[in-house]
Design a protein around this nucleic acid. Structure first.
Lengths: 333, 333
DNA sequence: CTGAAAGCGCTTACAG
DNA sequence: CTGAAAGCGCTTACAG
């Protein structure tokens, strides 16, 4: 194993002091062009990589940001994280990502680990049922954080999410405009704030048109394809009068497709389906899914920017940002 | 901002020395039960979190592992990373993930950053066209790494991937057994090793059955839905005799569905389609896709274990592991 | 079983 | 424009 190369060997090779090397590498102080060249050349030729642990320890500054999500294997978060990463990288930050699997204990552990690793800030899509414990921990360590996607009662941090109520209204208004009257809602856990808002949006639009949805037509459950299939099947076998299914997200809608096909009904003709998210594949399903588009990349971008701002100016008042959803008209209703 | 709490305040509060606190927190040395309790209580009550930068700097050991992937927004890698993360977490490691977007320069930068952050090891799905430069950098720093998914000529590291040749054989044998004779292959970049192997597997199976595929029936291109649609359309308009499409992955197959539908042919009856991967949604497409299942989670798990082993025993000979693919029979052929 | 002391690789006032 | 020196928060051999 070769000896680690530190700032000292670079200094020796360049014939300057360690302090000068540090100054050059951080573009600080006024170092002459000539010395800079010598130092950079020496660093290059030795394959020197700055030890960030030492740098962080000494300066108290860090170029690490943590992204904590509740489901890393959901493409929605994959897209979101991809944009966080891009924005962060532009400013020289490395983003580290961890998955809580929607488990509060794991979330707490993950946050603690990240603080220990010295993150400069955190972006968090909170696990369901998060209380203030983890966030207090972050605040106590003086670390800025921004919440995203899942709104929780925390007015100390920025929040970047969607206008879910508006999304619900858009979905319902579209179904109503297409002539559907008997509309059901499936998917999403009952205590999920996003589900609650979407559902309320749908209800409000219905009310505005003097329509109602019987309670038994709203089936809450996991936001999965499996649940969508199951819920659609159950609903269609008991309530033949249902004309359209508003589904908590596109995967639930895809499951609903299965249930509808099994009931030998034709999607878009016998029964309408609408989703939320607009995952890329939904354009290729048969029939292509009409859905309310949400923008994970935009969330990722806004959240990253908000965090970088919070890191640079810790005293700005937190803001709550709700991105507008958009209707993506296709063939399922 | 509250004063940072360090091992010293914990020591003061517990009435012991900093050394003792360190020993307790790391479960080292023989510290009396009583002292341990005092220390832990003090740490707890002060909300102490060990500064990993300092610990890493001093001990040279780190509990960080880096995962470098070429496309973070591909669900395949989302699943893979999810399992890496789980295995790593079991041993107390935090995994950090970064995306190279299949760009060698970015890959180099990302690896350099990760080394600077002090990772204990790296898991890498290499960007296309990777040369040895980045890997040499890793080796020079004495850091263990394992390669996955994309095989490259590097015999210094473990490799965990799929048996792509076998996957190709399975796909072709299935198509042939179903009575298809005129088989085309679409998708995947020409220089992509996985594509080359899958294609060879298909060719070999064909040859074994005294069949051939004209060169013009093999269309290489991005592994995307868009390309799949485009390739299927092109192929079907020029070569009506084609009976089945072997697609580089499920997304390409989904695109092929579109092309086939546009050509007013019926998938599974007029023309067969087979994919690779078995992404979760492919079961719900119309018709459900027959595909060769690969196992990203298994790759993630094996790679993480291999890396942890390499970290603990740096001198073991590297191994190359090829996981077996499996046929998932559905309705598309 | 526990403490005093050295040192990991940086950064940063300070002096010149 | 550059260097000498202190110190960030830990860990660890050594002594007792």
């Amino acid at each position: 194993m070769k000896p680690r190369v530190s700032i000292k060997q670079v200094a020796a090779k360049a014939g300057v002091s360690a302090a000068t090397v540090s100054l050059v590498l951080n573009d600080k102080g006024r170092i002459s062009e000539q010395t800079q060249r010598k130092v950079r050349k020496a660093a290059q030729s030795l394959g020197f990589i700055l030890n960030k642990s030492a740098s962080r320890l000494r300066s108290g500054r860090s170029l690490l940001i943590g992204l904590v999500v509740n489901d890393i294997s959901n493409p929605f978060f994959a897209e979101l994280s991809s944009d966080v990463e891009t924005i962060a990288a532009e400013k020289g930050y490395l983003s580290v990502m961890a998955n809580t699997r929607d488990d509060i204990e794991r979330q707490h552990a993950v946050i603690e680990t990240m603080i220990g690793q010295g993150v400069a800030g955190l972006i968090i899509s909170a696990a369901s049922g998060s209380d203030d414990r983890s966030f207090k921990l972050i605040r106590d360590h003086g670390i800025p954080y921004v919440l995203c996607v899942r709104e929780i009662k925390d007015y100390a941090a920025d929040f970047i999410g969607f206008d879910n109520h508006q999304a619900g209204v858009i979905a319902a208004e579209h179904l109503i405009a297409q002539g559907y009257r008997n509309i059901a809602f499936i998917g999403g856990m009952e205590h999920n704030e996003n589900r609650r808002r979407r559902f309320e949006g749908v209800s409000d639009a219905l009310t505005r048109h003097r329509l109602t949805m019987p309670e038994s037509w709203a089936l809450s459950g996991p936001a999965t394809r499996e649940f969508g299939a199951q819920a659609a099947t159950a609903l269609l076998s008991h309530h033949r009068e249902i004309e359209a299914l508003a589904c908590f997200n596109d995967y639930v809608a895809l499951g609903a497709y299965e249930g509808i096909n099994n009931a030998r009904l034709t999607i878009g003709r016998d029964i309408g389906v609408i989703g939320f998210d607009n995952v890329p594949e939904s354009a290729s399903w048969m029939p292509p899914l009409t859905t309310v588009e949400l923008f994970p990349r935009a969330i990722g971008r806004r959240a990253a920017k908000a965090l970088l701002t919070a890191i640079d100016s810790p005293d700005e008042a937190p803001e709550r940002v709700f991105l507008a959803p958009t209707l993506m008209r296709r063939k399922s209703c």
